[in-house]
Write a protein that binds this DNA or RNA. Structure first.
Lengths: 345, 345
DNA sequence: CTGTTAGCGCCTTCAA
DNA sequence: TTGAAGGCGCTAACAG
């Protein structure tokens, strides 16, 4: 940075007429412990303020080999607002703990990944958050082994690295509960299925859905397999409607699927939630934009980011699966008109 | 990081049987300049590789007071995928230049902002990108004055800090051109208006729209003032349709407005693009999710981020307004069925 | 061409 | 209570 020479600890000490030792102790809140006179302490504090002294991090880092910095490596920080929410949560938690975040995006490239790991280790980050956009099993870059790492939204295939994930199974159960709590029964179709084997979310959500359905005595009329995107979902639901008696409820495996489903339902003259109730997963902005607003089981991205920082700084938590809260919209409002109990912010 | 002591330059020098000076020169690719024998050079390189030596950045920073790190301060990295796209662009550009990004989110809080500035200056970042989610005029924190700063998506009220922004005026012109290039004429309504005075985008887009409209001999049937969100837009367009003869074209001031407009149009039995063509601003993911896909004047977030890094590292560019590219969807396809020329990725 | 050496700013042991 | 001094790892004068 183009700034001139900054004031150093020595400057402060000189101005206060004490040694750098004393100044150092005082400015690091150890004057008590070192039994430095209150008067001296105050004098140094004043001098520091007058000179608007700020410690030189590089020097401190070199000395203490710790930087109050946490690295985040993610395959995509750009895609959707998902990864960014996570970074946001992590950044806030880090700041509260007096840390800063350095971020790197790999775009899935292994070489970039390894490079970023090295760059961050060079900068002596206190720990590294390794995150993926879609929940998956991964092989982490070799440079990460033996470091203070936490995996986010993924697990490593072979090793025993601490990993934080949304509790997709419970999330699946929550989705079904949301449907039945709103008083709806009858035929439920799941839209989305398990297309990608490397993505864990689909399977776990489906398991949770089935388990909870069994508990409440509901049953799954069927699963519409389709790519997790708007148009495929639209087509799948459209075809379903032309073949069969319409479902009473739809569980969409993400919000974009729900968007497509909405279109198909509307085209078929079916209203949400009066004719068909819809619940979905993600809790993205889209859920709030749709009309009626979508009830969606939210992926706790910000919470994951914050928990990752905590894990790095204070050790792993007991629960490594984070709850997926229900974001209530109007797509599950009971036909009687009971208003939803919560609104999105 | 919990790693053991890392190998130092001295270790490498010792193993290669040379002085640290030579090792330093060689590893910094200055052996040529220092006329060090090829043989020695090779020996040192080998030793470094064998010990998998990596320079200690903190030490280097302290010595050279430069960190190969750039700070990004933004009011919201979480909201939408906007800020994150920008960060993504910046991160990539930074990495190419051998730099890393440290990011901080202020949530609009002045105190946090000032704190982050200090934290980053403490870490001796090479420069700071100060970005806002919505284009606006701001007062930057005092700590930023005199530093290597570039404003992104905003301008400072009083000072002369370099600022990079999307060319909203040209963008407005582009939107109109998109409409007329697709062969559409007739009544054009703008939806959105200028609600927020601190947000620059609305006014500039409208100016561009009016100017271009005049050039091509079109005219604005009217402006629907509404909040830039789905429901208000839906209501505004619905009311318009119930009062008036339907418009031939709609220029929506952002993608969410277009989403609401789509709903109102569909409800009224009007098809896009057959009955009404729609063009919009943002070029967000939503534009691709809507059916038919939306033609939208894209905010070049990634490009802004990349340009900001370049500005910080190499000085300000000539053009401080970045072009807003047209993202072609089907909402402006000519009625004759001409396919759009480009697809979103 | 290569080695010796003096800091960069800070923390901390040891003595006073 | 305070001061002097060493050293974190690296770079760059300045000798040889």
């Amino acid at each position: 940075m183009r700034g001139r020479r900054r004031t150093t600890l020595a400057d402060v000490a000189a101005r206060a007429g004490v040694s750098v030792t004393s100044a150092s102790y005082i400015l690091n809140s150890r004057s008590e412990e070192m039994r430095i006179s209150a008067e001296t302490t105050e004098r140094v504090r004043l001098a520091a303020r007058e000179l608007s002294y700020r410690p030189n991090r590089s020097a401190r880092n070199l000395r203490s080999s710790s930087t109050a910095t946490i690295g985040v490596i993610s395959d995509h920080v750009a895609s959707g607002s998902f990864a960014s929410r996570m970074i946001s949560g992590a950044a806030t938690a880090a700041r509260v703990a007096g840390h800063l975040l350095v971020v790197g995006e790999t775009e899935g490239d292994r070489e970039t990944e390894a490079l970023l790991v090295e760059e961050m280790l060079d900068r002596q980050v206190e720990g590294i958050i390794y995150a993926t956009l879609v929940a998956s099993a991964v092989t982490v870059p070799a440079g990460l082994r033996g470091q203070n790492v936490v995996l986010l939204n993924c697990v490593d295939l072979d090793g025993q690295l601490p990993a934080l994930m949304p509790d997709e199974y419970e999330g699946g159960r929550t989705a079904v509960s949301a449907l039945f709590d709103a008083g709806h029964r009858g035929r439920v179709w799941a839209v989305g299925g398990e297309t990608d084997l490397s993505a864990l979310a689909g399977g776990l959500r489906m398991q949770g859905i089935l388990a909870r359905l069994q508990e409440v005595g509901g049953l799954l009329a069927g699963v519409l397999d389709c790519e997790w995107a708007v148009v495929p979902a639209y087509e799948a639901v459209r075809d379903l409607l032309s073949d069969q008696e319409p479902p009473e409820s739809l569980i969409c495996l993400n919000d974009r699927i729900a968007m497509g489903a909405y279109d198909a339902l509307r085209e078929h003259g079916l209203r949400v939630p009066e004719d068909v109730t819809v619940v979905s997963f993600d809790g993205s902005d889209l859920a709030g934009w749709l009309r009626p607003s979508l009830t969606s089981v939210r992926i706790p991205f910000a919470e994951l980011g914050a928990a990752a920082v905590t894990t790095l700084l204070d050790g792993p938590p007991d629960r490594r699966l984070l709850p997926m809260p229900l974001l209530r919209g109007h797509s599950t409002a009971s036909v009687a008109g009971r208003p939803p109990t919560g609104r999105r912010p």
